[in-house]
């Protein structure tokens, strides 16, 4: 390195950050592409934007959306509750209990969910009368397993297999010392699980569960094969009448997008809540915007 004579006193030197012209170029290219695409899509009348606009607030689309939301909630509740139970079973010291949980996960994760759905839908062919092995119980399978019930069972039980792995990973992520400290303080295993282990495991459990919920919202569209009036099926019924197939698919897609966006926002704040006690909390979009505005504002010397 060549020695540069230092003439300016150090405190009078200004720091000039490196410029990034490549970033500006990339941003410009992408913006041009996006604008061209938007013009093309909005300008193509075969997309049928008028029809989209008309049916976006259609009553039957609305009730289809409600069915989709209801199915998502019901299936996730079944999945999370049963999944947590399976995770605890998997970690049991009893080999039969943990083996049963393992077999469940293997069976439900190893077969396509569409096949499972059709199995539940056709349960009456296997068991016309459901007795549950109990005396005095004789339920008509055709009545009991309506398409909606088959949908909840099929999707929920399948989800439980995935959720159990997520919950198990979360429980195992908590340091063993936590269990020991809780035991030494006189907490029972149940209290330790509920008060100490699970709240910490939630940090690992919440992000993939958010993904699962968003995935479930979309997977519920499979129930259209069983003629359950969900969002997609409602859109298809209309397009069967007016032959506007693409616009109706767009209507359904817009609603799926709206709900997944809302779920994503909810997931962010949920993750933030379970990050309590961490050194740094993830910043909210407003905080992020403020920070960006601050760093890109013309710098004033002396501010720190």
């Amino acid at each position: 390195m060549s020695a540069v004579p230092v003439l300016t006193p150090a405190e009078e030197l200004t720091v000039v950050p490196k410029r990034h012209p490549g970033r500006w170029l990339a941003a410009a290219v992408i913006l041009i592409i996006v604008v061209r695409m938007a013009i093309s899509v909005l300008g193509n009348e075969r997309f049928g934007w008028d029809t989209v606009n008309t049916y976006l607030r259609d009553v039957s689309i609305g009730s289809g959306l409600m069915m989709t939301l209801g199915l998502t909630v019901a299936c996730m509740v079944v999945g999370v509750v049963l999944g947590a139970l399976l995770a605890v079973m998997r970690l049991s010291a009893n080999p039969v209990v943990s083996g049963a949980a393992w077999a469940y996960v293997a069976a439900f994760r190893g077969t396509p969910v569409l096949v499972q759905l059709l199995f539940w839908y056709n349960l009456a062919a296997l068991y016309p009368v459901i007795t549950l092995g109990l005396p005095g119980v004789a339920l008509d399978a055709n009545q009991l397993i309506s398409p909606t019930v088959a949908a909840i069972l099929g999707l929920g039980l399948n989800e439980a297999a995935y959720m159990s792995e997520i919950v198990r990973a979360g429980i195992l992520s908590v340091d063993h010392g936590q269990q020991e400290a809780a035991s030494a303080l006189g907490l029972t295993r149940m209290e330790t699980m509920r008060r100490i282990i699970l709240p910490q495991a939630m940090r690992v459990i919440v992000p993939p569960t958010g993904n699962e919920t968003i995935g479930m919202l979309k997977t519920t569209s499979l129930v259209s094969v069983m003629a359950v009036h969900d969002l997609l099926y409602s859109a298809q019924i209309i397009s069967a009448r007016n032959y506007q197939i693409i616009p109706m698919l767009i209507v359904a897609s817009i609603w799926y997008l709206v709900v997944t966006t809302i779920l994503t926002i909810g997931q962010f704040y949920l993750e933030r809540r379970f990050a309590r006690g961490e050194r740094t909390l993830p910043e909210t979009p407003i905080q992020r915007l403020r920070r960006l505005l601050r760093t890109h504002a013309p710098s004033v010397r002396g501010t720190s």
Partner: peptide
């Protein structure tokens, strides 16, 4: 029983090498 052992332990304080404080509290 687990509860009886827990009761006994509550009368015996223990301090660990790695503290093992509950980080979410």
């Amino acid at each position: 029983s687990e509860r009886a052992i827990a009761r006994q332990r509550a009368h015996i304080g223990m301090v660990f090498q790695h503290f093992n404080l509950f980080p979410h509290m």
